[in-house]
């Protein structure tokens, strides 16, 4: 690992990914996408019998819901919002002039009602909240979304646009914490089947600034986040390929998701970083998927 030719360059050379000129923004090859879709099937097999429904989200979410999420409090450095031209004919002429001159042309761009989704489960919560109080069984949703985080990097496992597949549990504290424990075990079982080296460790999100260091320390002390780490780009700092998160009743309160007794719902989610898991498989089993270990091929392709 940490070879002379970077893993990213190897992926470009093998045409697994294609360079766009912007770090963290890559075209995917057919084989890369096939690995992801087979992994999704594999992951769904572990929870399909338990879920109450499934959803797929577009890569953008309503700005109002993005604001409610509190993302700007904690991660302003990672957020992306969609802006569009909202000017007149005159403004358009000015814009074209700026473009031709190589000047900043974005003055007339105005924020739209869309933010780029920063975490796959965020668009779910307002949908659930609108339905009124939860049934006693709560909700158990399988979902997938493209996400955006502004953190350009040469590490192929740190993309700016990537997909998360998640299972989200909404209900009582007991239901959500039991769900998270179950998935911590299942996640490790999945990695054993896929023959990927891994470890689970307590973690914290990359909260912004000095205040964020305190948020991070607090998150760790309360064991709200665990990550399943696999060496991908480096053995020294392995990559979080799954995360197991307990949000307490923070999202229940933020979006006003209520239990049958009127108290705020607790939420938990398990997230699978789809690109990261695909990269882990290529890293450990090679660029030729036909030559992957038979157990891995059987798990993914049947």
């Amino acid at each position: 690992m940490d070879a002379q030719v970077s893993f990213l360059d190897q992926l470009f050379n093998q045409r697994i990914l294609h360079d766009s000129g912007v770090d963290g923004l890559y075209a995917r090859s057919a084989v890369f996408e096939e690995v992801i879709s087979q992994f999704e099937e594999f992951a769904l097999a572990f929870g399909r019998h338990e879920i109450s429904e499934a959803m797929v989200f577009p890569p953008g979410m309503p700005m109002a819901d993005f604001e409610t999420s509190g993302y700007m409090k904690s991660f302003p450095q990672l957020a992306g919002t969609v802006h569009a031209f909202c000017g007149s004919d005159h403004d358009h002429a000015g814009l074209l002039q700026c473009l031709a001159a190589g000047d900043d042309w974005t003055d007339q761009q105005k924020a739209t009602e869309v933010a780029l989704t920063p975490a796959a489960c965020y668009p779910l919560y307002p949908i659930l909240a609108k339905r009124g109080p939860m049934p006693e069984t709560g909700a158990y949703v399988a979902l997938q979304s493209y996400c955006f985080r502004h953190e350009p990097s040469k590490d192929p496992a740190r993309m700016q646009m990537f997909r998360q597949r998640e299972y989200v549990r909404v209900g009582t504290a007991e239901q959500t914490m039991a769900f998270r424990e179950t998935w911590k075990q299942r996640g490790q079982e999945m990695m054993r089947i896929l023959e990927l080296p891994h470890e689970v460790d307590a973690a914290n999100d990359p909260f912004f600034g000095r205040a964020g260091r305190m948020m991070g320390a607090s998150q760790r002390e309360q064991e709200l986040k665990f990550e399943l780490l696999v060496p991908v780009n480096s053995t020294a700092s392995p990559t979080a390929c799954m995360s197991f998160n307990y949000h307490m009743d923070n999202f229940g309160k933020a979006w006003n998701i209520r239990l049958a007794d009127g108290s705020p719902a607790h939420t938990a989610c398990v997230g699978f970083g789809l690109e990261r898991l695909a990269l882990a498989l290529f890293r450990h089993h090679g660029f030729e998927v036909d030559a992957w270990p038979s157990g891995v091929r059987k798990a993914l392709w049947g």
Binding site: K73, R210, A211, R213, M214, M215, A217, S218, E221
Partner: peptide, 26 residues
């Protein structure tokens, strides 16, 4: 957690101090 961060920032301003890394915890 979030209120404790707001409190931390207010304390820093009131006492004109900066909490060092090892004290930024629950």
């Amino acid at each position: 957690s979030f209120a404790s961060v707001q409190l931390m920032l207010a304390l820093e301003e009131a006492f004109d101090v900066e909490f060092p890394e090892h004290l930024l915890n629950r």
